[in-house]
Amino acid sequence: MTEAEILGAFTRILRDLLGDQSIVLTMDTRREEVPNWDSFGYVTFIVAVEIELGVNFGIAEVESFANVGAIVRRTEALLPPS
């Protein structure tokens, strides 16, 4: 998957999670900038990403992602090469 495809998947997952079709994620988006994307929704989002894309994040690293781009890049690194 490319960065753009992963970003697209993230956007879809988060829209479904928060029930908000207006959400548009970019690589620079920070969680605080998305309405209602609180810390609780964040964990759910991470697990949803794990399930959908078949990756597994380390518990300690989940807390350290500064923005969506950081999660995308880490996901890309965890995915098997296509």
């Binding site: 479904d16 999670l17 928060l18 029930g19 810390s39 609780f40 964990v43 759910t44 991470i46 697990v47 949803a48 794990e50 399930i51 518990i59 989940v62 807390e63």
Partner: peptide
């Protein structure tokens, strides 16, 4: 959130998913 909630919620969610039960998604 980082050191209590996240580890607990993540491990519970993963365990539930692994057992085939529905998770908490949307």
């Amino acid at each position: 959130t980082a050191y209590v909630y996240n580890p607990l919620a993540l491990s519970l969610t993963r365990r539930r998913m692994a057992s085939g039960r529905p998770g908490f998604v949307g």
